[in-house]
Write a protein that binds this DNA or RNA. Structure first.
Lengths: 155, 155
DNA sequence: TATTGTTATACTCTATAACTATA
DNA sequence: TATAGTTATAGAGTATAACAATA
């Protein structure tokens, strides 16, 4: 029996699931020593880059449900990597701010994730890696526009 | 605030997670009317293509833990899509066989997944789609060889 | 009334230990 | 003693409903 999953290999989605498993395992190993997971690193990164962000905005950016983001923010705040500051113009909301420690950990995490990316993409040229990112973003955009179209036509 | 996740977008892994979410949602919608999920379709497909396969072999092929495969096989068997036949040469093992109904459902599922693939890959040329599959398989292979190397050096 | 963040909850996916029956 | 399949279970990840405080 050669190539037992040859039928499935005709679909990009099948190979993407398997490639993403490799990536997820490797990036979580790269971040573990910093006390971060893929999702907590992503949240920290967006907060560092966008000071004053609201939790609901961050949830939208990362496509995470608001209830699930609460625990992620709790985790980062309990380790003094970020702060929840009550927004002056809307006392329901928090303005999220990275602390100095948070920015420093983010710098270290960026290097760790950069090393991970170099490792798992070692079989690709830099040109191929950039083409891959571009194709992935087009796939994501196609899905988003289909969702939007479905909501419009369904309304 | 423009491009709030621009730092993360430099990593292929981040865009792959988001693209894969789109793919997973769409393929599961495409298979739902057939009573299949991504993983049950994958298992059915490998069984159809490889009659007589053992459960442990199928688990290896799909990179699923053996305990998790049991429920998937239970599901397919309870709907008479596959059969567990005791292996004549090893009474601990099962030889998995697709039934006629299983092969017929697999034909319909292949068409549904083909339609899904065409939909989510609409923003890519066929050449790009094939290049994407090739790159994903190289990423997966890099990860597998690193795992093997780690086990060797760790042994 | 609607929105922000929160709590509680449930469902899926995945991973591990330990069992049984065979080998 | 080891292996095939199974059971039980626990941990992530993800999704929805409903609540308090505020708009």
């Amino acid at each position: 029996m050669s190539d037992p999953d040859r039928t499935l290999r005709r679909f990009a989605g099948y190979s993407m699931k398997r490639a993403f498993n490799v990536i997820q395992t490797d990036v979580n190993e790269a971040l573990a020593s910093l006390g971060l997971r893929m999702v907590t690193f992503s949240a920290l990164s967006v907060i560092v880059d966008n000071p004053g962000l609201r939790q609901s905005q961050l949830a939208d950016i990362l496509s995470i449900e608001r209830p699930n983001l609460v625990l992620i923010i709790d985790d980062l705040e309990s380790r003094d990597l970020i702060m929840r500051q009550r927004a002056s113009d809307d006392r329901r909301a928090y303005a999220l701010q990275a602390t100095l420690a948070g920015r420093r950990l983010h710098d270290r995490a960026l290097k760790a994730v950069g090393g991970h990316e170099a490792r798992v993409m070692a079989g690709l040229t830099e040109q191929e890696r950039l083409a891959l990112i571009d194709m992935l973003m087009r796939i994501e955009a196609t899905g988003r526009s289909e969702d939007a179209g479905r909501q419009v036509s369904g309304a």
